[in-house]
Amino acid sequence: MLDRFTMPLTHRPLLLIARYLSSRRVTPDQVTLGTFLVGMASLPLLAFEYYAFALIAIVLNRLGDGLDGALARLSGRQSDAGGFIDIGLDFVFYAAVVLGFALADPEQNALAATVLLFAFIGTGTSFLAFAIAAKAHNVERPNFPQKAFYYLEGLTEGTETIIALVLFCLFPQHFPWLAGLFAAACIMTTATRLWGGYWTLRQYNDH
C-alpha cells in the first residue's frame, strides 16, 4: 500500500551508493547475497533474545534490499535470474525473522508465529503466481517500472512488512498481538490479490 510512496524516496540515496559500489566492481548478486546473510543473522539473535542487535540486522537487510536492483540498472546487469534470487531470498528472510521470535519464546510466540507464516504463504504465492502470469501476458507495471517482475500491490507490501518487523523487535513482549494483527492484514492482502489478479487476467484471456 505504501511502497508507491516510499520507493521514490529511496531512489536517489540508493543510486549514490550503487555508483560507489560500481566503481569498486561490486556486482548486484554479491550485494543480494551479502544483505541476505546480514539479515539471516537476525535468526540466532532473535532466538537468544538480542532484539536490539537483531533489529540492526533487519534494518541493514531492508536498506540493502533495493541496492542490488539499483546497482543492476546502473551497470546494465538487470536479469530475470537476479530478480528471481532477490525475491526468493527476501521470503526466506521474512520467514527466518518470524521463526526467530518463535524460538525466543515458544510458549508465548509459537502460535502467533505459525499463523503469520501461514499468512505469508498466501501473500507470497499470490504475489509470485500473478507475476508469472503477468509476464506471459506482458501486463504493464506503471507504478513500479524498475522491478524485474510485475509488482502486485496490496494492503501489506514491503514498507508495511518493514514496519511490522521493526515493531516486533521494539516490543517483543507484544509479539503475539502484533503478529496477529499483521497476519490479519496479510490475509486480507491475499484475498484482494487473488480477487483482483483473477479478474485482471480474465480480461486478457477474454481478449
Rank of each mutant, 00 (worst) to 15 (best):
W177E: 15
A96G: 13
A129S: 13
L128A: 14
Q30N: 13
T6N: 07
H174P: 05
I58L: 13
V92P: 04
F5Q: 15
Y198K: 11
Q146C: 14
L55M: 14
F91T: 12
L46Q: 00
I56N: 00
F171I: 08
F5N: 14
R77Y: 09
A52M: 13
Q146N: 10
L45T: 08
L37P: 03
L15N: 10
H137E: 14
M40N: 13
L117E: 13
L55N: 05
A191M: 10
I162K: 10
A81T: 15
F5T: 06
R202A: 05
L37K: 01
A184N: 04
A47C: 03
G83L: 05
V38S: 01
I121R: 08
V26L: 07
K135P: 06
A112V: 07
Y50Q: 15
A191D: 03
V98H: 00
L170W: 00
M7R: 14
G39W: 05
Y20L: 11
N205C: 09
L37I: 08
F171T: 10
A184Y: 02
R24F: 02
G83Y: 03
T190R: 04
G100C: 04
H137G: 04
Q30R: 10
I58F: 03
V38Q: 00
T125S: 14
V98P: 06
S79L: 01
S42M: 10
F144M: 12
V139D: 07
R62A: 02
G180W: 01
V31P: 05
A70W: 00
T161F: 05
Q30C: 09
G66C: 07
A185E: 02
V139M: 03
G88N: 09
V115H: 03
D29S: 11
R4L: 03
F168P: 02
Y150C: 02
L170C: 01
S126M: 03
S22F: 01
L128P: 00
D90C: 11
Q203N: 06
I162G: 07
S126D: 08
L14R: 12
L74H: 04
H137N: 12
Q78K: 09
F48H: 15
A104L: 09
L167H: 05
L2T: 06
A96M: 09
T156C: 08
R24M: 14
N109K: 03
S79W: 03
F93V: 08
Q146T: 12
H137M: 10
V26T: 07
F91K: 15
A131S: 15
Y50S: 14
F127D: 08
L116P: 00
M40I: 14
L2N: 06
L55W: 04
G196E: 01
L165V: 08
T10M: 06
H137S: 08
L60T: 00
A179I: 06
A47H: 01
R4T: 13
S42Y: 08
H137Q: 12
L194M: 11
S75R: 01
A112W: 02
L46W: 02
Q30H: 11
V166G: 06
R19A: 05
R73D: 11
G64F: 06
A41R: 06
G76I: 08
A185M: 14
A41C: 11
N61P: 13
F53D: 09
A134D: 02
A47Q: 00
N205I: 15
M40Q: 05
N143P: 02
W199Q: 15
G82K: 04
T35C: 12
G154A: 10
L155I: 15
A179H: 06
A185D: 05
T6K: 04
M188W: 15
V98E: 07
